[in-house]
């Protein structure tokens, strides 16, 4: 039943992000080799693969976070809604407002919970007055399932929250900027199982409005939250397809070896 629903939806919706022959070098190291992939809208896509296989690097290409690393060089074509994101006309700062990112380790700013969430909206001028800003903050915290825990302590520092709450705060912060795509780089690796479950529930909920890409080391997590899965190995995209199909009937022997635990 679930499978049918997904197939219906993916058939209906078009491609959000498309990458063609992407190559990335860190200095002399060839980190990403000829990766081509099409990521659909309103879908959770999981990137799996052993450490150092390039999945995080590829994720950081999608919002041009690699621009902040001097020695990093990106080649190939990546489009968001058909627009080349590496086109000189594109401002990487604007792009990052559209493509939000949540990091491996929760990194709330040393500000109050409110200011953490209001950071993006303030920078981009999304609220015309204080009441609107309050509303954005409340909605974002609600969507990140943090409102009930945080509503009485909005002015206390975000760094005072527990690890799982901090990560949900970071997600709320990313949502508040109203992105179209949400990139998550191992968002649960620093969290305990209960906090992980909360974040996974949240990701499933976010799928209704965003295209979510999640990098994860946990294959169970990929199977739980994603509809499509991409398997990276040694900088190449080995296999990409429906999550259920990848986990039950992988085509490539390397994918099978990885998901059955023989490599990685």
């Amino acid at each position: 039943m679930k499978d049918m629903l997904i197939e219906e939806r993916t058939a209906m919706e078009d491609v959000k992000i498309s990458a063609k022959d992407v190559n990335v070098w860190y200095g002399d190291t060839h980190a990403i080799k000829d990766v081509s992939v099409e990521i659909k809208d309103k879908t959770v896509t999981a990137f799996i693969g052993p450490s150092g296989c390039g999945k995080s690097t590829f994720l950081r290409c999608i919002n041009r976070m690699n621009d902040t690393i001097d020695i990093c060089r990106v080649e190939g074509l990546i489009t968001l809604d058909g627009q080349d994101i590496y086109d000189p006309k594109v401002d990487p700062v604007q792009l990052r407002a559209k493509v939000g990112m949540v990091f491996q380790k929760p990194n709330p700013f040393p500000k109050s919970i409110y200011d953490n969430v209001a950071y993006g909206p303030r920078i981009h001028g999304l609220a015309r007055n204080k009441a609107e800003l309050d509303e954005i903050v409340e909605n974002s915290l609600r969507r990140a399932a943090l409102w009930n825990e945080a509503k009485d302590r909005l002015q206390s520092p975000g760094t005072g929250l527990s690890g799982g709450q901090q990560q949900r705060l970071c997600i709320a912060r990313a949502i508040a900027t109203e992105p179209e795509v949400l990139l998550m780089d191992e968002p649960c690796s620093a969290l305990d199982p209960i906090a992980t479950a909360q974040v996974e529930e949240l990701i499933d909920e976010l799928r209704t409005s965003y295209s979510v890409i999640i990098v994860t080391h946990s294959m169970q997590q990929a199977a739980r939250v994603s509809q499509r899965t991409a398997f990276f190995h040694l900088g190449s995209l080995v296999e990409y397809g429906e999550t259920d199909r990848i986990f039950t009937n992988p085509v490539d022997p390397r994918t099978e070896a990885y998901i059955t635990g023989r490599i990685g």
Binding site: V93, R96, G100, K105, F109, T177
Partner: peptide, 11 residues
């Protein structure tokens, strides 16, 4: 990570 967090929000 502070810088990344901020850049990641389009600052």
């Amino acid at each position: 990570s502070m810088r990344d967090g901020s850049y990641g929000l389009g600052a």
